[in-house]
Amino acid sequence: MLEQFRKFGRELFLQGVNSSHSGNMSVRMGDRIFITRRGSMLSDLTERDIIETGLHGDDSHIVLASTEIKIHRAIYQGTSALAIVHAHPPMAIALSLICDEIIPIDTEGIYYFKTVPVIATELTVGSDEVAEKLPPVLGNYRIAVLRGHGSFAVGQMLEEAFQWTSSLEATCRVIYFAAQLGFPGALARGKQGEPSW
């Protein structure tokens, strides 16, 4: 399992969707969760950076777990996901500030997502509000973006959740470039006040 965490943690950093210490990942195994340590560098994970704790209840390892443990638990309890990747992809975050949803215009994005919900909450880090709003959305979508904060992607395995994260950022880049080039409607459909999800 460590190898998987190391591989995709490093890729997230190399692809520029995480900064040095941002983001977190987890895997569910029955009633246990394996999650990255609070403050760890996803690009340089060691055995000590993978923290095992309960799906439902806390134990002593909770003091080491990622700050977002509450959100990961809520997602696992509210969806069939077995893996979660949380990242801070800059293009997706930028678009989330002006859109209620991110609607792909490129073939890959349309194929994978159709639309990516943007969720707005007052507090975006480890808050009860996020834990309440995000799981129902991820029950229907592979990935969603917390406005101004970052993406949460789910899958059966880490690679899947990683893929949605990587693909979302690529899609957002296309939207941005297309808008810069004057492509009509590149941003129009996802603007605030018009969510379709």
Partner: peptide, 25 residues
Amino acid sequence: RRWIKANPVTSRGLPFFGTAILVNL
């Protein structure tokens, strides 16, 4: 208070188990 609430040590570990949470760790 937001930071205290967002940090698992001060929002979950210590409130739920007290300082004794360190024993197993």
